[in-house]
């Protein structure tokens, strides 16, 4: 199981949790598992999210491996200047 930290306002989709656990070996599996467990996250994940693994931010990369002890943070998709 991988522990995923969500940003605060996603609490409404997870029954109040911002730390959740899912079974996933890469980012694609992680996003799929999150939607399965918390269907209300689907629209947010479809709008676009990034995943930070051990401090590095990955945009839309489904096959980035995640180790069970990795720090995983779900982040919104960012656009810059």
């Amino acid at each position: 199981m991988v522990k995923v930290v969500l940003w605060g306002s996603l609490r409404s989709a997870t029954g109040g949790l911002t730390d959740v656990e899912v079974d996933a070996a890469n980012t694609g599996e992680l996003l799929k598992a999150l939607v399965e467990k918390y269907p209300e996250l689907e629209s947010i994940i479809e709008e676009g999210v990034s995943v930070a693994i051990d401090g590095l931010i990955y945009k839309e990369a489904w096959f980035t491996p995640i180790k069970p002890d990795s720090e995983v943070v779900l982040m919104p998709y960012m656009k810059g200047g």
């Binding site: 930290v5 940003w7 930070a52 051990d54 401090g55 590095l56 931010i57 720090e71 943070v73 779900l74 982040m75």
Partner: peptide, 16 residues
């Protein structure tokens, strides 16, 4: 108070 390597950032991930 400065963030440094290992600090949990205010937006989630830990800084390298």
């Amino acid at each position: 108070n400065a963030a440094r390597k290992g600090t949990k950032s205010s937006y989630g991930p830990t800084f390298d």
